[in-house]
Simulated assay, not measured.
Amino acid sequence: MTHSYRPFQHAWLDKKTSAKEQPLPEALRSTSLLMRVLCFLALGRPNLDDHWKSLQSEQAFETVRTRLCDILGSTITAASILAISSVFVSTASPVSYFGYTSSIPYYPIFISLMFAIFAMLTSGSSMIRWLHTDRHWTQEQLKQGGYFVWSYLLSMVTPMFFVVWSLNCFVFAMLIAGFSSQSVICRALTALGLVTYIVNVGKILIEAMRKYAT
């Protein structure tokens, strides 16, 4: 009979804890520049204030967990596409004027494939970690600061880091192949693609800097 009351006791304790919001621990207040950048890349904010608030209730924590799992799932999809593309372009080129299998662009393609595989592995492990993590346990571990905070943030950032590098290596290889082409049209299209890529990356960086400043 006593077991039937345990869910009600846990629910009552959770409501009582949520009603009294815990302040941000001292270990999470003073952060270095590297930690602030890592927080921004992982959580979209240069500090842990908002994330700590999300740990105060189950509903907010589930929202954060769902969002991060969606991001990690998208990262796995992007890494899979990059890996397939890298394997595909490692075969012989169907046209003579776009030689992406020559020795110079082949190395960035191979590096892109490695980064894509690393991204899939780290995304999968991070997703498993988030699916099985517990709010109260996470809260207690974050209070201590130190190694767990770094590991906690890196588990979110590392997959995206690998995907970005994989994409850049793949683009770099295609640019080398395009500008090395004997076809004027191919070189012109490559130049147009490079300009488009730079503009989009610049817009992303400017938006990120504005968000970091606010």
Rank of each mutant, 00 (worst) to 15 (best):
K20G: 07
Q144W: 02
V164N: 04
G73S: 13
L82G: 00
K211L: 08
G193S: 00
I81M: 14
Q56D: 04
I185H: 11
G44E: 00
T101F: 10
P7A: 02
L82W: 00
F88E: 07
L55T: 04
S74T: 15
L194D: 00
P94W: 04
E26C: 08
L175R: 12
S32R: 07
S166M: 03
V37A: 11
T66K: 14
Y106M: 11
V171H: 02
V89H: 02
T214I: 15
T17Y: 11
S180D: 10
T214W: 08
S74G: 15
F148G: 01
L38D: 04
V87G: 11
T133D: 10
L33R: 14
T133N: 12
M160T: 09
I206M: 11
H51Y: 11
S181F: 01
G73T: 13
I71L: 13
A173N: 01
A173C: 00
L113F: 04
F161E: 05
P159Y: 07
T91A: 10
T91Q: 08
S102K: 13
S93Y: 09
R45D: 05
V184M: 14
L192K: 10
V87S: 08
S123W: 05
S32E: 04
Q144P: 00
L55Y: 04
V87M: 11
A116M: 01
A19S: 14
Y106F: 15
A92E: 13
T101W: 09
I204W: 09
F40V: 05
P23A: 00
L142M: 12
P108L: 00
V149N: 05
L82T: 02
I84S: 12
T75F: 07
L34W: 14
E62S: 15
G44N: 03
A78G: 12
V171W: 00
L33I: 13
A188N: 10
I128H: 10
L13S: 14
G73L: 09
G145Q: 04
T75C: 11
I104M: 15
L205Q: 12
T91N: 12
G44D: 01
T66R: 15
Y100F: 15
S4G: 10
L72T: 05
L167V: 10
N200E: 11
I76P: 02
K53N: 05
W130N: 03
S155W: 06
R45A: 10
V89P: 00
A42E: 01
T63Y: 15
Y212I: 06
F172V: 00
H10I: 14
T77F: 13
L34Q: 15
P105G: 01
F40C: 05
F61P: 04
A177P: 02
R210C: 12
F179K: 15
S166L: 03
F161L: 13
P25M: 04
I185P: 03
V157T: 05
L142I: 12
W165Y: 08
Y107R: 14
P159M: 06
A42R: 01
L121N: 03
S183G: 03
Q9E: 11
F170G: 00
S30T: 07
H3S: 13
I117R: 02
F8W: 08
A11P: 03
W165K: 01
N200T: 14
G145C: 02
G178E: 03
S80Q: 06
E21Y: 07
S151F: 09
T214Q: 11
Y147D: 12
I198N: 02
V184N: 09
H132W: 15
A116D: 02
T133Y: 10
E62G: 10
L192C: 12
R135G: 05
F110M: 13
